[in-house]
Simulated scan of single mutants.
Amino acid sequence: MDPLKQKLVARAQAEGFGLARICRPWDVPQVPGRLETFLDKGRHGQMQWMAERSHWRGDPSALWPEARSVIMLGESYTPAHDPLAVLERRSEGAISVYAQNRDYHDLVKKRLKRLARWLISETSDKTEVKVFVDTAPVPEKPLGAAAGLGWQGKHTNLVSRDLGSWFFIGSIFTTLDIEADAGEADHCGRCRACLDVCPTGAFPAPYQLDARRCISYLTIEHHGPVDAELRPLMGNRIYGCDDCLAVCPWNKFAQEAREVRYHARADLLGPPLAELAQLDDASFRAKFSGSPIKRIGVARFLRNVLYAIGNSGDPALVSTAQAHCDAEDATVADAARWAVERLQDVENRMDRSQNPA
């Protein structure tokens, strides 16, 4: 191995990255028509930025033509708990594992910047670098596959033989010419656990995602009311969804995240929906300070919480939902009325079963 590359990998591991591999900007595996089909069919939903910058996503070498190498890095956030257990506790909110503590964008970017500064100090002040972590039209998953971090599984996410599905991806583009690694082969085989577990059927086919049906998209990126047919399928998921990640068999090789700031906060492991519904803008911002959840704002968060209340089957939460029926935000008010109607139906069925005619 190139001595510089050897030191680079060691330094990346010292910074906390579990995986460090190299590829070329032009090494992105080309799956004919994958991105075009996704966009042409409107599967990106309201994420217009994906269409507007699709030329960079299809060809990352166009993002920065001077770059000669891309350092791809993976950092584990594997949970110690079963992330699917909360789905059975329907009066509690299910929050995606990655959002149960600090915002990974901030933590990963700081590590990337430290590693980039080290690289310049080890080479030359003429070395140029750019760091990215989900903040630019960089095709991180295809680049990760090209570098050998893992392969894009049937759920379209990157899977590692070492870290399973639970890891963040960061990249450092550089003008340095560093020895590249071999890409990773697909090891999904006949397994379709991730496809079969999806509650909304967001996978039209293996390796294809329709974001418009994905609960992660619906709870985070989607503005306004969610289609009525999808609301009952969301269950108590109020921010993101981990189902397809959690069932991946390759997770059996993953170990709990070393970074304690990725470990779940006790108050976010299954927060009572009744308490979350009481949050106003100020208390929402205070509770989720430093969390990625803060990005969606209190109105969208309350919308999600109210859908979960409607799916809880708990008539005791009717009054909690009723308190938002006249909310200033029309989407929140609509979600509240939907939740009240659902719970009143449950209450009526219970009364009929207890007092048959």
Rank of each mutant, 00 (worst) to 15 (best):
A20H: 00
P60I: 12
V247N: 04
C198D: 01
V305A: 04
V346T: 13
P292R: 00
T320H: 08
P3Q: 01
L112D: 13
H187F: 14
K287Y: 12
T320N: 05
W166T: 00
Y207W: 14
L158N: 06
R102D: 15
F203S: 03
F284W: 03
D281N: 13
L195D: 02
V226W: 07
D181E: 12
L302Q: 02
N157W: 08
L84Y: 02
E328G: 15
S319Q: 15
P315N: 03
S54M: 08
A282T: 15
A316I: 11
A146Y: 13
C325K: 09
D2F: 06
F301G: 03
L230T: 02
W166H: 04
S165Q: 05
P79A: 01
G270Q: 09
S283M: 12
F173L: 13
A264L: 07
P225C: 03
N236Y: 06
W338I: 02
G144M: 04
A257I: 00
D82C: 09
V226L: 04
K7C: 11
E15L: 10
C191I: 11
L317C: 08
E229S: 09
E179W: 04
V131P: 01
Q46D: 14
A180T: 15
C241R: 06
D329P: 00
R57F: 10
L112V: 14
S76H: 08
D334Q: 06
K141T: 14
S76K: 04
R117H: 13
E66P: 02
E221A: 06
D329E: 04
D242R: 01
I169P: 03
D134V: 05
S160A: 06
V318I: 14
I169T: 03
L8R: 01
C194Y: 03
R300P: 09
C248Q: 00
E347W: 08
